[in-house]
Amino acid sequence: MEKRTIDLEQVRYIAHLARLELSLEEEEKFARQLGRILSYVEKLKELDTTNVPPTSHVLPLKNVFREDALGFSLSSKEALSNAPCRKDNWFKVPKIVG
């Protein structure tokens, strides 16, 4: 099994994209864990896929549609009921500009 590693820089970059704040210990821990996960997935490379077309879905189906018709919607009260913060009918979130 090929061994893959992830360095701390990569962990920080991924955490940033996911807007996660990690402690130094967590960065170390996740670097180790992510490396192990990747190494495990590398195992798939052992399969010969020369004659297998790239697949994004396991079902041999295409074109599943619905007609353009109105259906079920939530009330704004329901929609906002789990929001940690709200104001009137709006979800309230920390400001991010730019």
């Binding site: 619905r66 109105l70 259906g71 079920f72 919607s73 009330s75 704004s76 929609a79 906002l80 009918n89």
Partner: peptide, 14 residues
């Protein structure tokens, strides 16, 4: 199936 109408009260077409 939510509506797409412009200018509705916020979070009522969700």
């Amino acid at each position: 199936g939510c509506k797409t109408k412009f200018g509705a009260t916020p979070n009522t077409q969700v």
